[in-house]
C-alpha cells in the first residue's frame, strides 16, 4: 500500500513538474531566517502550516495563537494575523477568538509543556466543548526555550536537566498520551499523531495538518495534530541521531497514526 501511495505522490509532484519549480518556500512563511536550532522540528512544522494555508487560500482569514515556548515568536515567521497567549492558555484564547469570529480560521501552535503540562485543563475543555479550532501540538519531549527540562512527554529514563539520572516513574510519573486522552471526548473530531523525522513522515504530517484544517473549514469541530519533533540541542544528539531516535524510540511509545477521525 505504501508503494502505491508514494507513486501517487510522485505523480502529483511530476504533474507539477511542468513548472520550473517543484518545491519552494510557501508564501505565508516570511522569507527570514528562523531562530530555531539546527535540525529543530519546529521549523518544519511552521512550513507545513504555511503550505496548508497557502493551498487552502485562507491566509487572509487565518488567525494564529502562538504559545509560550521556543515558538513564542512564531509571528515573526508567519505572514498572517497572530496573537500570543499566556503559557498554556492558547486554547482558551483561541476559543475567545473563534466564538466571536466564526468565519475566521483559528489555530493554536503549542509545545508539550504548553499543552500537556500547564495547559491541560484548557486543551481538554476546548476539545470537550468541540471548539471548531485546529491545534498543532509539537511534542519534542523537553522544554526547549528554558533549557531542556523534563516535559510531560519526556520518556521514561530520558535524561533532561531536571531528570539528570533519567526520568523515573516513581518520582516523575509516566509520559502522558494527551491525544489518546482527548480521543474519548465526543467534541474532539480529528486527532492524528505524525512525525517530521524523515521526508516521508513530513509528507504524512502535511496531509494530517491539511485534514485538521479541513475539519475546521468544514465546521466539523475540534481537530488536533501531534507532531513528534526533533530537539537535537536538548537531546544532546546530532540532528540525524535525533531523527533516528524518533523513528526507533519515541514513535514506539507514541505510535504514529490517526487516533480518531470522522
Amino acid at each position: 500500500m505504501k508503494k502505491k501511495r508514494l507513486k501517487k505522490i510522485k505523480n502529483t509532484a511530476i504533474r507539477k513538474a511542468e513548472e520550473v519549480l517543484a518545491f519552494s518556500r510557501p508564501k505565508s512563511l516570511r522569507d527570514v531566517e528562523l531562530h530555531y536550532c539546527a535540525g529543530c522540528g519546529h521549523s518544519i512544522v511552521h512550513r507545513l502550516i504555511c503550505e496548508t494555508i497557502d493551498e487552502f487560500g485562507i491566509r487572509e482569514r487565518v488567525i494564529g495563537v502562538a504559545p509560550v515556548g521556543c515558538a513564542v515568536i512564531a509571528y515573526d515567521y508567519w505572514d498572517f494575523d497572530v496573537t500570543e497567549a499566556a503559557h498554556g492558555r492558547t486554547p482558551a484564547v483561541a476559543t475567545g477568538i473563534k466564538r466571536v469570529l466564526p468565519g475566521n480560521i483559528v489555530f493554536t501552535y503549542q509545545g508539550d509543556g504548553d499543552l500537556a503540562a500547564i495547559g491541560t485543563a484548557e486543551i481538554i475543555h476546548a476539545a470537550n466543548r468541540g471548539e471548531n479550532i485546529t491545534v498543532i501540538f509539537v511534542n519534542n519531549g523537553v522544554y526547549g526555550m528554558t533549557g531542556g527540562q523534563m516535559a510531560p512527554t519526556t520518556l521514561a529514563g530520558q535524561k533532561t536537566v531536571t531528570t539528570l539520572e533519567g526520568r523515573t516513574i516513581r518520582n516523575d510519573g509516566y509520559p502522558i498520551k494527551i491525544l489518546e486522552m482527548l480521543s474519548v471526548l465526543p467534541g474532539a473530531k480529528y486527532l492524528e499523531r505524525v512525525s517530521v523525522h524523515s521526508a516521508q513522515e513530513i509528507l504524512r504530517a502535511k496531509r494530517a495538518i491539511s485534514k485538521a484544517f479541513k475539519t475546521q473549514i468544514d465546521n466539523k469541530g475540534f481537530s488536533i495534530v501531534e507532531v513528534l519533533s526533533m530537539c537535537p540541542t536538548y537531546w544532546g544528539m546530532t540532528s540525524i541521531q535525533s531523527a533516528d531516535r524518533i523513528k526507533n524510540e519515541v514513535s514506539t511509545f507514541y505510535p504514529i497514526g490517526v487516533i480518531k477521525s470522522y
Binding site: 509532484a13 522540528g41 521526508a199 516521508q200
Partner: peptide, 12 residues
C-alpha cells in the same frame, strides 16, 4: 527531482 531533500530541510 523527488523533493525529499527540500521537504526535510528545516530552514526551507
Amino acid at each position: 527531482g523527488c523533493t525529499m531533500c527540500a521537504l526535510s530541510c528545516p530552514e526551507c
